[in-house]
Simulated scan of single mutants.
Amino acid sequence: METENSNNNNAFKSRPIPSPITHLSFMASQIWLRIVAAATSVTAACLMFNSRQSKVLFGTDLDARYSYSPAFKFYGMMNAVACAFSVLSLLPVFSLGRKFSNSINYFFLFLHDLMIVLLLAGGCAAATTVAQIGKYGNSHAGWMPICDNFGKFCHKVAASLILGYVSLFCYLLLTVISANKARQVPV
């Protein structure tokens, strides 16, 4: 009986309890990365939703708009969703601010962050593919590049994509941090 109790006590002693500085850095990184992710994703969505340019070429009015591409629409919507979930996820992060939270809460935060990473990665990949075709064309399919004629449109799309990838990187960091915290916190 004595050895069984000492084994149980050793099991609890072997799990390190995070220091207040570690917990404080976790909270600060969660809050700031979520704010940066929300700001970059809302800016990326606004840039994408406002990317349009009209031009007269050879006597014909031509338009370049984000809404002409389903990939650009998907990208804009995924950034808007990521922004909304970034702001909403601040509430559970503040509730996790208690010093000794259950690890299942951190696991749910990890799942949330992973879901947003997947949505942002899909949106960024789709929009990057269409942007690459718009910039360079595809001679095998007979698609001509449009960025030579619609530079303003292409610059807005490029800026939106850069911000989208910054948001994706922030959420990737949040996913790693949340997974690490879920692994460390005692049940």
Rank of each mutant, 00 (worst) to 15 (best):
F107I: 07
F107H: 08
F107K: 13
F107Q: 04
L109I: 01
L109C: 08
F110A: 06
F110C: 02
L111P: 06
H112S: 11
H112L: 11
D113S: 09
D113V: 12
D113R: 10
D113C: 14
L114H: 05
I116W: 05
L118E: 13
L118D: 11
L118V: 14
L118I: 09
L119A: 07
L120R: 15
A121I: 01
A121V: 04
G122V: 04
G122L: 05
C124Q: 01
C124K: 07
A125C: 11
A125R: 07
A126Q: 01
A126G: 12
T129R: 11
V130I: 09
V130M: 08
V130L: 02
A131I: 05
I133M: 06
G134A: 11
G134L: 11
K135D: 05
K135L: 04
Y136I: 08
Y136D: 11
G137T: 07
G137Y: 03
N138D: 13
N138A: 06
S139F: 13
S139I: 10
S139R: 15
H140Y: 13
H140M: 07
A141E: 09
A141Q: 02
G142H: 03
G142I: 00
W143Q: 06
W143K: 06
W143H: 03
M144F: 14
P145C: 00
P145E: 04
P145M: 07
I146D: 05
C147P: 01
D148V: 02
N149C: 08
F150I: 06
F150Y: 05
F150R: 01
F150D: 01
F150G: 01
F150T: 00
G151V: 10
K152Y: 13
K152L: 10
K152A: 15
F153C: 04
F153R: 02
C154I: 08
H155L: 06
H155C: 09
K156G: 01
K156D: 00
K156E: 00
V157K: 10
V157S: 15
A158P: 09
A158G: 08
A158T: 14
A158E: 07
A158S: 15
A159Q: 03
S160K: 09
S160L: 12
L161F: 14
L161R: 02
I162M: 10
V166K: 13
L168H: 02
L168D: 04
L168W: 04
F169S: 11
F169T: 13
C170R: 07
Y171T: 02
L172W: 15
L173E: 03
L173K: 08
L173C: 07
L174H: 00
L174P: 14
L174D: 01
T175Q: 02
T175Y: 00
V176A: 04
V176R: 13
I177W: 13
S178W: 02
S178F: 12
